[in-house]
Design a protein around this nucleic acid. Structure first.
Lengths: 163, 163
DNA sequence: TAATAATCTTAGACTAATCTAACATTTAAA
DNA sequence: TTTAAATGTTAGATTAGTCTAAGATTATTA
């Protein structure tokens, strides 16, 4: 409804990063300052400033000179969206593929801006499927994958009686 | 060995796209012209030109004025690398997640530049695991995922006797 | 072979994102 | 409450990647 698909409102990866950073910092510290955002994203205050003036013009953040930075409801929504995508990807990479957190986190950062809605949705379902199976922590096939990854051998989970 | 991790040689996503395009076009048509590359990537010939002069300076392509474009062995290697990542991602998205080819292809294009070696490797193994299980086309759990995706219900593949 | 079409190159403008360096304001401390 | 430190802003440069428009070269075809 809010036209996130409209070209006029489409955020670049960098701008999504800023929104994500602001939301994350606010969540942790209550308020977000220019400095914090810069530290979070490893960019200089002047870069933050120009990003903020862009996002502010476009209605995603509120930023008065020398004051704390805040998100509009539009900005908050966009930030939540990015963070959710990030978490889904991170979850997939760590719990399904078994990638180290720090590598997975970096990869999630890189992927979170580019994926189509359809892929994100399916991935979400996939992670749910891999995690939430009732009555067991991890499904058998996931253990089998680990085994395959370690040894290159297919383990007979069922079928064919064997071994 | 060839220092693809060296900053000096690190290719941007755009440059990787050019290499990928050149390799793909050459494979299909024998030779690659500036025009073909532009059509492939939906950019103008002048953009192709400036990309080529960059890639040529850095030793990835060979391009004499008004002639066909070719890859050096270095360029060929980089192109193969990108194409392989693309295929792994495409495979995962289509065969495991069941995403439509055209969406999956677009998503693969976007992800192929950003993933860490570790993630790509695990994803490769995962696709192998999902596809190459001997004696059956698709593993049971993949069918179960489809069922979960359609209905939201976990099907009892084994365990707990039920249903 | 001369005219026309297709392709390629160059020059120069533009946008997004970053930086440095200088300056302004606010906050904290002496 | 004045000074010093931290933080924020502005101006201007830089880089990567794209574009348009004009000109150069090659290929086609009449």
């Amino acid at each position: 409804m809010y036209g996130r698909k409209d070209k006029k409102f489409k955020l670049t990866p960098a701008m999504e990063d800023y929104l994500e950073a602001i939301a994350t910092i606010k969540q942790k510290q209550g308020v977000a300052r220019v400095r914090d955002i810069g530290d979070f994203l490893h960019v200089k205050p002047s870069s933050v400033h120009s990003a903020l003036s862009n996002l502010s013009k476009r209605g995603f953040v509120i930023h008065e000179r020398y004051e704390f930075v805040d998100l509009t409801s539009e900005g908050e929504k966009a930030a939540k969206d990015v963070i959710k995508r990030h978490e889904i990807l991170l979850n997939f990479l760590t719990t399904v593929l078994g990638i180290d957190w720090s590598v997975a986190n970096k990869d999630a950062c890189l992927m979170e801006h580019s994926l189509s809605g359809e892929t994100v949705q399916k991935l979400t379902k996939f992670v749910e499927f891999a995690q939430n199976r009732p009555g067991q922590d991890r499904p058998e096939w996931l253990h089998s994958f680990e085994h395959y990854y370690q040894t290159g051998e297919f383990r007979n989970c069922r079928k064919r009686a064997g071994k």
